[in-house]
Every structure is written in structure tokens, then in C-alpha cells.
Nucleic acid binder design. Structure first.
Lengths: 341, 341
DNA sequence: CTGAAAGCGCTAACAA
DNA sequence: TTGTTAGCGCTTTCAG
């Protein structure tokens, strides 16, 4: 007993214990087909007593069906992604599908590897962040023969379906509001991540719309690593020392924006009178700060939900819309003047 | 072509395309056994051209080996858990094992379900948060015949192996420091989560150590839902209105502690002179706040790493220590006096 | 170094 | 309502 090699229980064990054929046991355990109440009882009883756990590997191989949805995201520590995941889980919960998460750390090669790894388990669908992937990755997704939804961005060409906001448009929108409020000397602070395409697109849209208003970004600063809040503080200090005449700071995310806000408040600077601020994301996390940072919500939960719905529909053999643009709303918070000064 | 039903490529397709037996193709693709360079070339070439992705389901069924490790945690939005995951991934990365995450939302029944679901994929090991599980869950883990590591807590009896800190001891330790610094009227603020056993144990240890010093918790308050930062602010305000004579506030996590800190600073209260504060966790996220909150680090990354190492060792057939207690360090920050006042 | 045969544990399809 | 038969796509084992 003690030294016995471990062997999982099989249908056969349950079959023998209950005196019912393997096939019928299988039917009971899956709630498929008609089985008499008496037989069902016997089977359930035996399965429970033995502590039988079905082997999905064998099941999947035999049925050619896997109830898994591959979800591939850049990071878990960004807060953004857990929320997307929440939306996905919420919808998948009552479809019999299950999300399985893979993380890429914003590295295309890792994304490719993770994708390959996940596809080798033959999931029923893929939800993947962004529209930028290696050629090999795109090829894999195209030839996998399963629904693929790219989320959180729609500025580009999806492999199959896409759900998300236009970051370019988001950048433009914020720029317009800033100009409208009368700010003129604008600084930008962001992450040093050439591979964060969404941040890049926001920045592009932002500068483009400023340009249309005859304004250009006056100073900019990028960071990498470390605590975002602390970095926001430092960068803001550096930038204002260098360019004391700035009247607006646009941050590529709310965390560094919050750091900047705390710094300015420390310094006794009038926000948004003397300097206005805006971030991006709508992070609920920050709700308790002394002022609410102006921001724009990226529709994370909704993205997750809609993407999951597309997958679920397609898996069920239904048609589903394949391009959904969500519209982020600006939240002026307390750090962006609302009218021309 | 267009209406063709999708069928994944198989070893057989590669075999035919390369003119090499399926068996040899399999060997090449897994780097197993000796294969001549020429054959290898042909196979690799064919596989690449076809875009073959191996079917791990079939592979796992045939080999009775699955390179997956089930990781079961209460939540992804808690920040704590992504860090643990980081530690796990870091170690598993070079072992050929892959973490697969399941989330329980702190609900025992959901934990049981998630566990069942994951075990049905026959993973090579389980890493699960906490020591409290339903009887059924414990039974499943015991009879799965794979290594199981319970993490983030060691106050209890593990099913198999355990890695983590003693939350009871952590609570005691903080209480002692608070008393030592001379605080006497102490309030506690936490989450209303009867199922967060670790927070509960910290609280128990805390009150116990205070009692030894002849002090008891003077006031307490619990919250649920909402932004932790904002809640910390509100709760602190409420509590101080109710009990203005408090001289120390102990929070069950850093986020609400930070909210409290911001509130006190707003009010112009002298921290830590008039009121001292402490939280729990050592959240790097908060580094940019005006003051550093006193806290205690929960060794999250280390827990993940050690747990993964135990799994990896056991999977490799090696012995591995099965109870590892990590020791959290107090960080006094700027909100806890260091000597008797 | 390469190949053929036998199954992994389950389910689809059909038969009784 | 229940049982039988034949695989699913791969790897193990053993034979060349």
C-alpha cells in the first residue's frame, strides 16, 4: 500500500465498482443521454466513494473538444489585465468554457512561445491583447481553425475579430480637451516601452491633435522599472525643474499621474489652475487620493466581456460581430479645467 | 477549400510530407533518442512548412505526463498574488513545467470546483494558497498522487508541503513593536472577510500580544468592497470621530493603511507623533506616497519561488523539504516611532 | 538509427 | 435504456 505506485482511477474502476458499463458511467458523469435513475444513483455513488476525478485529457482526445479558452496578456501586475480577465471569466462562467491565462511580459517572442504552447492544448478559442504579433504568431492563429479575438486595441488589422478602443483616438480626444481648457505648454511623461503599442498609439494621436491646434509637446520624459507612483513623482520633479513654464502634464498611465499629482500637491502648486494633469486608465485603485486625476477609462471589463461573448457565440456555431469599437469616456476629475481659462 | 472543416495537422501529415516514419518524426520533435542529422533536417523542415503544432493532449495521454502545475489563488486583483505568481513562473521557467492559474474569489466551494477542474487535467503538481480547504478538496489533493504545496501560511496542518509565513506570529510581532514604541490606545481596521484566514490569524496574533502587554484593541472597523484607498480614508475618519483618543491604527493591508495615512496628513495630524500607523504587505506600488507606511513584508515572491522549487524537485523524483517557514521583516517606514516616546 | 505494434482513458456511433 | 466497437494522436516498447 505505502509503496504502491500511484495510478489515477479510471472510468473502468467506477464501472466495476458500480456494475455498470464504462459507457453508461461516462454518460452519467457527463449528464448525456438517457440513463435510468437507479443506474445513475449507483454510478454517482460509486464515483463519489472512490473519489473519481475524470481524465479530461482522454476525454478531450476522444471527443476532439476542449473547453479551454487561451487568454494571452502582457502582464498581471498592470491592474488593467486582471480587470479584463474579470470580464472574460464573468461571461465564460456560464458557457462551460474556461479561461487559461498566459503572460508575455510585452515580449513578442515570448508571446509567440506562449501562444504555441497554448495552441498545443487545442483550446476552443483565443483572446489575445493587442494587434501586433510576430508573423509566425499570426500564422498560427490563422491556421488554428478556432475563433481569435484581439482585444484592447482596434487601430490595425485583426487576424479574425477585435474588440477594444482606438488608442489613437483616445490620445486625440484628450489633447482636444486640454487645448479647449486653454493649456498651452504641455509635457508628456510615459513608460520607456517601445513594445507597448497602445501607449505609443495614444501618444501619436495626442501629438497629432495638438499639432492641429498649433501646439507641440514641449518636453517629454520616459521611465522604466520601479514603483510607478514613485517614478511619477521623480519624473515630474525633474521635468518641472527643467521646464518650469509647463502648464499641463499628460501621463501615459494613472499610476505615474498619481505620483505627479502627489508631488505637485506637496509643492503647493495649484492643480489644475497653474498646472493641469491627466492620466489614462480609470484605475479605481486610486479613488482615495486627495484629488481625482483626470483620466480616460479604457473599457477593460467591457472588452473582456465582449471578447468572451464572441468566443462563446462562435464556439456555439453562431455568427458574431467581429469588430467592436468601444468608446472611452473622459473623466475630468479634479485636475483638468473644464472651460477656457 | 473555403468550406472545408478544420482539422489540425497530425504527426502523420508531417511524416508523409517528410517521408519519415511517425515515430521518428516524434523523436525529432521532442529531441529524444538518436536521429541522423539528415533525417532531423527533413522533419524539421516539413514541420515548419506545414505549420505543425503538436497535440499535447494526445502526447499527455500517451506518455502519462503533463507539464502543468496548477496554481490556485484567491484573487488576481490583490497584487499579492501576481507577485507570488511571478516567483513561481521564474522558477518553473527552466524546468519545463508551466503554471496554470485558477482563481477562487476566497470562496471555499469555488476553490473546490477549480481544484477539481484542474486535477482533471492531471497536472504534475499543485500550489494552493492557504491551509484551509473543504474536506473534499483536501481529499482530492491527498489522493491525486502529485506534490501539493500550500503557500502563504503555515499556521495549520498542510496536506503535503507548506511554504509561507506565520500570520499569527506576524501579528504578534507588529503588536510588540507598537507597544515598545509606547502606543497605548490602539484601533484596528480591516476587511470584512471571514474567509480571509490569513488576515484573521494576524488579528488574533495581534490581540494576543497586546493582551500580554495588558492592552486591548480599543476600537475596530471592517469594510467590504470598493476602492481600498478610499475605504481606508473613510474608515479612518469614522473611527477617529468615534474614538478621538486613539494613538495607533493597525490596518489589515497596506492599501487601506495608505488611505488612512493620506487622511491623517490632510487633517494635519502628526504621524507618527500623535498617531502611529501600520499596515501589512510591503506593497511596492505605494512607494511614492508622501510618507512610507510601516508594514511587514509577506515574502510573496520568495514563497512562490520556494513552492515552485519543491514541486520541481518532487517531479524530478528528488526529496524536498516539506515545511518552510519564511520570516517577514518589519519595515518601520515613517509612521511608527522606533523608541519609547 | 529507424520502424511497427500496442495502448493511454475516454467518447462517437452504432447495435441490441 | 444500455452495451459494444473503434478510434482520437501521440508515445512506449520492442524489434529490426
Amino acid at each position: 500500500m505505502a509503496n504502491e505506485v500511484h495510478r489515477s482511477l479510471t472510468l473502468r474502476d467506477v464501472s466495476e465498482a458500480s456494475g455498470v458499463s464504462e459507457m453508461t458511467v461516462s454518460r452519467v458523469l457527463r449528464n448525456r443521454g438517457d440513463v435510468s435513475d437507479r443506474t445513475r444513483e449507483k454510478v454517482l455513488q460509486a464515483a463519489k466513494e472512490l473519489g473519481y476525478v475524470p481524465n479530461k485529457i482522454a476525454g478531450a482526445l476522444a471527443s476532439q473538444r476542449v473547453n479551454l479558452v487561451a487568454v494571452i496578456i502582457p502582464s498581471l501586475s498592470n491592474m488593467v489585465f486582471p480587470e479584463v480577465l474579470g470580464g472574460i471569466s464573468e461571461v465564460l462562467e456560464d458557457t462551460g468554457l474556461q479561461p487559461v491565462v498566459g503572460v508575455t511580459d510585452y515580449i513578442p517572442e515570448k508571446e509567440e512561445k506562449v501562444l504555441y504552447e497554448m495552441l498545443s492544448w487545442r483550446p476552443s478559442g483565443v483572446i489575445i491583447a493587442g494587434l501586433e504579433h510576430t508573423e509566425a504568431a499570426k500564422a498560427m492563429m490563422r491556421s488554428a481553425g478556432i475563433p481569435v479575438v484581439e482585444i484592447m486595441d482596434i487601430d490595425g488589422t485583426p487576424v479574425d475579430a477585435a474588440v477594444g478602443i482606438s488608442h489613437r483616438r483616445a490620445g486625440r480626444k484628450m489633447a482636444k480637451q486640454i487645448l479647449k481648457a486653454g493649456y498651452e505648454k504641455i509635457g508628456f511623461l510615459g513608460t520607456k516601452m517601445p513594445l507597448d503599442h497602445r501607449a505609443r498609439k495614444r501618444f501619436e494621436g495626442f501629438t497629432e491633435a495638438l499639432a492641429k491646434g498649433g501646439v507641440e509637446v514641449h518636453d517629454q520624459e520616459f521611465y522604466s522599472g520601479g514603483s510607478a507612483l514613485a517614478k511619477g513623482r521623480e519624473m515630474t520633479e525633474m521635468m518641472l525643474n527643467r521646464s518650469p513654464d509647463l502648464d499641463f502634464l499628460y501621463y501615459s498611465n494613472d499610476m505615474i499621474g498619481a505620483g505627479g499629482l502627489l508631488y505637485l500637491l506637496d509643492q503647493g502648486i495649484d492643480v489644475p489652475g497653474q498646472i493641469g494633469l491627466a492620466g489614462f486608465n480609470g484605475v479605481e485603485l486610486l479613488d482615495g487620493l486627495p484629488r481625482r486625476l483626470a483620466t480616460m477609462d479604457a473599457c477593460r471589463r467591457a472588452s473582456g466581456r465582449k471578447a468572451a461573448k464572441i468566443i462563446a457565440a462562435r464556439v456555439a456555431g453562431e455568427e458574431a460581430k467581429s469588430l467592436i469599437e468601444l468608446t472611452p469616456k473622459i473623466d475630468f476629475g479634479d485636475t483638468l479645467k473644464r472651460k477656457k481659462s
